[in-house]
């Protein structure tokens, strides 16, 4: 039983082994610090799942109710652009995985380059997304701001109105996803600067690993969004 004596003053406890400058002193070991960081990241992703989970619930409910409207509205999206974006994002995810590998194998140049590539594809995704949104604006498919049911003449007027629910969810879901991308991209720029200083290639790879988890999570959300929003009823077309 060792309990600190109250009031006892001691100088900063000396660690016997050499440790990284990033080691924080409230952690006993670097191992503990690394585990805590990764555990924290997984928990954070859990909250993200709950965040998107609310939207997915709404999607399932309304898709069930207004299936014809969802199918018709889904056909106004460009599957080509969606597929292109999926490919871009998977590539970006691959680059991120390579960046983690580079950090772990202590290759500073490769790390910076792969982070840059990840970011390049991330930005490319947003550019494509911008064109898709612009098309929605042009076609008056934005509920509340600029909306008309002219493209859905085949549906009854009442069902055509329900496409607004689809577009509401489309913008809410892809918008929230894009917001996560933007946050990620800003972070990557910051990580690139730090990686260039060699911060992550001396054994301290936790930030890159954890950011990788985040980036892959954002990718996976898109992997769900793409079929749910773009590929409804593809076979029946």
């Amino acid at each position: 039983m060792v309990v600190t004596q109250p009031g006892e003053l001691q100088e900063e406890h000396e660690h016997e082994h050499v440790h990284l400058p990033q080691h924080r002193h409230h952690f006993e070991t670097e191992e503990q610090q690394r585990e805590a960081a990764s555990f924290g990241m997984w928990l954070f992703l859990l909250t993200e799942i709950m965040f998107f989970g609310g939207l997915f619930m709404a999607y399932l409910l309304y898709r069930n109710w207004y299936n014809p409207a969802f199918v018709a509205a889904s056909h106004t999206l460009s599957i080509k652009l969606g597929a292109l974006n999926t490919a871009i994002l998977i590539t970006s995810g691959f680059c991120m995985a390579m960046a983690v590998w580079a950090a772990e194998t202590r290759k500073r140049k490769a790390l910076v380059n792969f982070l840059g590539l990840t970011n390049f594809f991330g930005i490319a995704f947003l550019v494509v997304k911008y064109f898709e949104y612009a098309e929605k604006w042009h076609d008056s498919h934005i509920p509340g701001l600029k909306f008309s049911i002219a493209d859905f003449g085949k549906l009854g007027v009442d069902m055509a109105q329900k496409t607004q629910v689809y577009y509401s969810l489309y913008f809410a879901m892809t918008g929230m996803h894009a917001l996560h991308m933007i946050i990620g991209i800003v972070l990557i720029f910051w990580y690139m600067v730090r990686a260039n200083r060699g911060e992550f290639t001396e054994g301290y790879v936790a930030p890159i690993e954890n950011f990788g988890l985040y980036w892959h999570f954002v990718d996976i959300v898109w992997i769900f969004l793409f079929p749910l929003l773009y590929l409804i009823d593809l076979g029946a077309k």
Partner: peptide, 17 residues
């Protein structure tokens, strides 16, 4: 979002619940 741009996820007038 419903107040600012008028999305309709909860708006009965647009089919939301």
């Amino acid at each position: 979002l419903e107040r600012t741009i008028g999305l309709g996820v909860f708006d009965p007038a647009k089919g939301g619940d």
